[in-house]
């Protein structure tokens, strides 16, 4: 994908921010705003990879991939670039893995206005340092995604939500690789995918009955807990927890966790290396307050 126009938009001086569909907080206010190119370059079903502009809506990508029996493990809202820049997975993370494992290669535009390649086009690649992992979740503070190559996965034959009253621990231990296990302190929802007979057998094993879908996830806050610590939520309410993962969707807002001083210092060194003038998404919080 030709990114020269996008690189020229970003330029090499002055504060600049980026937006997609505005579903994850939108651009930094009162700063010149750019958009990454949109559109699917190609889908290679036999390689299980897809290439698209970072401005492509995830829903558009998902629909196109469905046509070849595949999907990509990104949350369905907003753009591909936004999903990667925030790096938060959907409630399917238990089965699909984290967002950071989706990105194979990107061309991003750096603070110097240069087009930079990170990663490589193959699923397996250890050629140099893993810059892709560093970029995912970095909120545009190190560079703006231009185009990406993403890993896809086959769609399952059957995908069914199930439900049972009570705690999830036994169900979680008994089932083989469920795609999602959600718990609100009272009841458990499980998403099982695969061959229809296997799905039915797994459901029977867990004492589960089919339901239409998952519970609605509270959007007030999002906590990150060790999976083993979720048991401490027993007896409380106002949350939906992703069992086996540790993401907890809460009604109440959640505050940021502080970084260790040496880790914060490393963040500052990375920001200084990648954007010495602090021009990309100025003021955005990358984990230890505004930069």
């Amino acid at each position: 994908m030709d990114l020269s126009d996008f690189a020229a938009d970003v330029g090499d001086s002055g504060p600049v921010t980026i937006t997609g569909l505005g579903t994850r907080g939108g651009p930094v206010a009162d700063v010149r705003c750019v958009r990454a190119p949109a559109g699917i370059d190609w889908i290679q079903a036999d390689e299980m990879i897809v290439s698209c502009g970072a401005g492509t809506p995830v829903a558009e990508l998902d629909a196109a991939l469905a046509g070849v029996g595949q999907s990509v493990a990104l949350p369905l809202s907003g753009t591909v670039g936004g999903a990667l820049a925030i790096g938060r997975s959907s409630h399917r993370r238990l089965g699909d893995g984290p967002v950071r494992d989706v990105l194979l290669q990107t061309h991003y535009v750096s603070a110097a206005g240069e087009i930079v390649k990170a990663g490589g086009p193959t699923v397996k690649n250890v050629s140099g340092f893993d810059l892709c992992r560093l970029l995912v979740g970095s909120r545009g503070a190190l560079g703006f995604f231009g185009d990406v190559i993403l890993r896809t996965r086959p769609l399952p034959a059957v995908s069914q939500w199930f439900h049972r009253e009570g705690d999830p621990w036994e169900v979680f231990a008994a089932l083989y690789r469920p795609v999602s296990v959600l718990w609100d302190g009272q009841a458990t929802w499980v998403l099982i995918e695969g061959h229809s007979i296997d799905v039915a057998e797994q459901a029977a094993r867990g004492g589960l009955r089919p339901v239409d879908g998952p519970p609605s996830l509270p959007t007030g806050g999002r906590r990150s807990m060790a999976p083993s610590a979720l048991r401490t939520l027993s007896g409380t309410s106002g949350f939906v927890a992703e069992v086996g993962v540790g993401v907890v969707h809460t009604i109440e807002p959640s505050g940021p966790e502080p970084l260790q001083p040496a880790v914060a210092a490393l963040h500052r060194r990375l920001l200084h290396q990648f954007d010495p003038g602090g021009r990309l998404n100025p003021g955005i919080d990358v984990g230890f307050g505004s930069v």
Binding site: G87, R88, S89, R93, P98, R100, V126, F129, D130, L131, R133, L134, V136, G137, S138, L142, R222, S224, M225, A226, P227, S228, A229, E242, V245, G246, V247, P256, E257, P258, L259, Q260, A262, V263, A264, L266, H267, L270, V286, G287, F288
Partner: peptide, 27 residues
């Protein structure tokens, strides 16, 4: 770290704050 600090990258929890230094470190 090369300057001698002892730090933790990543976490048992799924979404530790900040950059994915765990991912950057691996490899």
């Amino acid at each position: 770290l090369p300057e001698g600090d002892i730090v933790t990258f990543g976490g048992e929890d799924p979404e530790p704050a900040g950059f994915d230094l765990r991912g950057a470190f691996v490899g």
